[in-house]
């Protein structure tokens, strides 16, 4: 791959326009839909993606989820975003 981009705390992340993220009642799961594919997202992943709304900065996402889970989840969020970005699910808005 030609590009390696590091996501910083100030970045604002959003779901790539090609992807559709939503709850699926028959599957009882959050899914990401994209051309030719479906990805089932686990609960933590879904909580993160819900906050990738093009408004929250990464540090705001981290603060909100740390509060929600009353524990430090910074590392798993960073790791998830890194993977999600590499797979093209999310992009850096600014």
């Amino acid at each position: 791959m030609s590009e390696t981009i590091t996501i910083t705390a100030e970045n604002i992340i959003e779901i790539s326009p090609m992807y559709l993220f939503r709850w699926e009642e028959p599957q009882q799961a959050y899914v990401l839909l994209y051309p030719e594919g479906i990805v089932k997202v686990n609960e933590t992943g879904a909580e993160i993606l819900k906050l990738c709304d093009g408004i929250n900065t990464v540090s705001e996402v981290i603060t909100k989820l740390n509060d929600k889970y009353s524990t430090d989840v910074t590392e798993s969020i960073n790791k998830f975003l890194e993977v999600a970005h590499a797979k093209g699910w999310v992009r850096i808005k600014s």
Partner: peptide, 16 residues
């Protein structure tokens, strides 16, 4: 759908 499609759902018996 293609042979190389990424599918991480097993289908759960649903015609996805």
């Amino acid at each position: 759908p293609k042979d190389g499609s990424e599918l991480s759902l097993d289908g759960l018996g649903i015609p996805m």
